[in-house]
Design a protein around this nucleic acid. Sequence first.
DNA 1: CGCTTGCCTGGAGTGCACTCAAGGGTTTTA
DNA 2: TAAAACCCTTGAGTGCACTCCAGGCAAGCG
Lengths: 127, 127
Amino acid sequence: MNLTETRYTISEVEARTGLTQHTLRWYERIGLMPHVDRSHSGQRRFSDKDLHWLGFVGKLRATGMSVADMVRYAELVREGDHTVDERRELLERTRREVLARVAELTDALEVLDFKIALYSGTGKAQS
Amino acid sequence: MNLTETRYTISEVEARTGLTQHTLRWYERIGLMPHVDRSHSGQRRFSDKDLHWLGFVGKLRATGMSVADMVRYAELVREGDHTVDERRELLERTRREVLARVAELTDALEVLDFKIALYSGTGKAQS
DNA sequence: CGCTTGCCTGGAGTGCACTCAAGGGTTTTA
DNA sequence: TAAAACCCTTGAGTGCACTCCAGGCAAGCG
């Protein structure tokens, strides 16, 4: 048990996550972050738990999930264990969307490769 | 040689491509479409060539390429054969971005699967 | 003590990719 | 031939995900 838990200022979190201070404050405002601890003067002091959550949020964002859905997910987490079903559904829907997106990208990639090959050939290429 | 080339009204193109009439007109306005033929009264009459181009534009859009870059590509096509190098570069850059995006999605998918598995387990799950 | 630096808030502004509105012609159907 | 359906243009509006601004407090240093 470590009694001196590490706390991070907003600029440290900015450096670690790549999210701007603006975005971090905005995430908190819209309910995408649990309320962050404050120093006696009101400045944010992020914990490792906060950083971990931000890491997960980053993954969700990478899936293309909308901010509205991420906020919904965060709400469900705050509401407790009885929301696991809805959370799982949300993630499963997102999962299906990711798979569809990957398929779409893979498909578009083929077209891209075909065009690139055309342009790389010695002959004249068209549109 | 077929002298009766098929022409499509804007609503037929809407039905075939899934793009709205608004979007089709907007594409033309911003230079993402070559200028489309018009009927004597000024209504658009799309050709099969136009449809083919729209199909390709759809693929580009599916890669996540910005509209600005698609317009740039369209300009290069209009300028002729001496732009093939720049076109190829544009497509190759897009290709790299698609690969990066697929990697990112694949990575996020793992996290998603991990979480879903947690929620599907019989025990209590956390954040 | 004054100055710089860092952080705070609420609200306005930005860029992207559409999307819609207003006002008006044209073409098809009854 | 009148009504309904379709199409035109310019320009304004929308939703999303940030991003920035103004005005102000607080901590540290020289």
